[in-house]
């Protein structure tokens, strides 16, 4: 099951995981600080997207079943949540 990558590629994937973690922290900083609710919502949407990409890199490094389904669920729920919250922020109603 494990794709036998070379050691240098495994090291590179570890570095990529670290950089993804850094970018998650940067986005979380914007989520904490954002002056308007739109900024916070944008940071939350980016956080969903980055979490899905972190799961993709994690699946390359430590393969396990159902990680792609988890990433798909994260992107789907992120889109639905962002859409509903943006509609609410724009016109104070989700469905008119």
């Amino acid at each position: 099951m494990t794709p036998a990558f070379s050691p240098w590629l495994n090291t590179l994937l570890d570095g990529a995981l670290f950089v993804m973690l850094l970018s998650l922290l940067l986005v979380a900083w914007r989520l904490w600080r954002g002056p308007d609710a739109v900024d916070r919502l944008l940071a939350l949407d980016t956080l969903y997207l980055n979490a899905a990409s972190l799961l993709l890199v994690w699946d390359l490094r430590h393969p396990m079943p159902l990680l792609f389904e988890a990433a798909l669920m994260i992107t789907a729920l992120g889109f639905v949540g962002t859409t509903a919250a943006a509609r609410y922020l724009a016109r104070h109603a989700v469905i008119e």
């Binding site: 308007d36 609710a37 739109v38 997207l49 992107t75 789907a76 962002t82 943006a86 016109r91």
Partner: peptide, 22 residues
Amino acid sequence: FVFLTAPVSASLLAQAAIRRRC
């Protein structure tokens, strides 16, 4: 899914920012 939904949510966020006079 990502390439279909990312522009839609970006457009909705831009509409919300316009409405809220950011």
